[in-house]
């Protein structure tokens, strides 16, 4: 370790360069697409990009950021999204208004989070395996409830385009992302809970010996993570006007990718909300740009996978380079 740290002292420039690689890459890629794909920079495309892809992944990834910051991971984000979406749709179809459906959906998400938290904080199971178990059970429950995966459509048009509402010229879902990001971001970076999460995520035994309650902190983290996913679940079902079983799992991998890309942006290599949002943007811009220059969905996935791998490689290379944090 000493040798690594020592060699890095002479190379602050390189490490700074590596740290800046993600913003630079995004700029380069945006520039490339705006030249290669004529429609890329058009308002219509940008807004559809942001609305259709960015919002959901961003909210889920924000929740994931907390789990990663606390030294864990949340594989059951999809389950929380789905359960919230299910509760939302069922409540609306049952004749309740948004006033009931939205809190109901949040409660459903929080239940998934509490289940995780109970396993992690109560039984001492590692977050990876605990949330993996939740994911399995969640899938099974959804299959049983939806007869093997049949979507449930929102019967009456109770949602006169919740997603189409704009305020101050900005669509509602984007305001939602902004709100969630602000709350989660400020607490993580400046809040007391954020510092406790950092301590638990960096060195759990020290946190314990300093009088922090590991249980309470992981409880809060996993419930918060699931709550963010529940918000995404509400947005999802209002966008597609239905509950589609197991649709939340699609976010898992990109959310994890975005969070870890975000750590590159931090001088200290810590998970952080602005970085996560940039990571989400990066993933979306690539997918959208590739679509516009005519690559089909399959090639998009190859390219995204390759790029994420590349960015992660840079991320960890830069962390090893940085002499002190």
């Amino acid at each position: 370790m000493t040798t690594l740290a020592a060699t890095a002292v002479s190379r602050p420039l390189l490490s700074r360069l590596l740290r800046g690689i993600l913003p630079l890459l995004i700029v380069a890629i945006v520039a490339f697409f705006s030249v290669a794909a004529p429609g890329f920079l058009s308002l219509g495309n940008l807004s559809s990009l942001v609305l259709n892809n960015f919002v959901l992944l961003a909210i889920v990834a924000i929740g994931m950021t907390w789990a990663v910051a606390a030294g864990g991971i949340d594989l059951s984000v999809g389950t929380a999204v789905d359960f919230a979406s299910l509760a939302f749709v069922v409540l609306l179809n049952g004749g309740y208004g948004l006033v009931v459906a939205i809190p109901g959906a949040l409660v459903a998400g929080a239940l998934v989070g509490s289940f995780n938290a109970g396993l992690i904080a109560g039984l001492g199971i590692t977050p990876f395996l605990a949330t993996l178990g939740t994911l399995f059970i969640g899938t099974s429950v959804q299959q049983l409830l939806s007869d093997g995966g049949q979507p449930i459509y929102i019967a009456q048009p109770v949602l006169p385009g919740l997603t189409a509402v704009t305020w101050l010229g900005m669509p509602l879902p984007l305001w939602l992302v902004l709100a969630v990001a602000t709350v989660y971001g400020v607490i993580l970076a400046r809040g007391r809970l954020g510092r406790e999460i950092l301590a638990v995520g960096t060195q759990v035994q020290l946190a314990r010996y300093s009088g922090l309650s590991i249980r309470q902190i992981s409880l809060k983290v996993f419930i918060a993570s699931a709550l963010a996913c529940a918000v995404a679940g509400i947005v999802l079902s209002s966008t597609v006007n239905a509950y589609v079983p197991m649709s939340g799992n699609a976010f898992l991998i990109n959310a994890i990718g975005a969070v870890f890309m975000g750590t590159t942006l931090s001088r200290t290599g810590r998970a952080n909300i602005p970085g996560t949002l940039l990571g989400v943007l990066f993933i979306n811009v690539i997918a959208n740009g590739l679509l516009l220059i005519g690559w089909n969905f399959y090639w998009q996935q190859v390219a995204t996978g390759g790029l994420i791998l590349l960015v992660l490689a840079f991320s960890f290379a830069s962390r090893r380079q940085s002499p002190s944090y």
Binding site: R192, R195, A199, T202, Y325
Partner: peptide, 26 residues
């Protein structure tokens, strides 16, 4: 006793965070 990866400040204040907390923020 200490978290080597955290800063001196983060280590020194960890046991008494409530003293620096106003409305949940540090």
């Amino acid at each position: 006793g200490v978290a080597p990866l955290l800063s001196v400040l983060e280590n020194l204040t960890l046991a008494g965070l409530s003293r620096f907390t106003r409305a949940c923020l540090l």
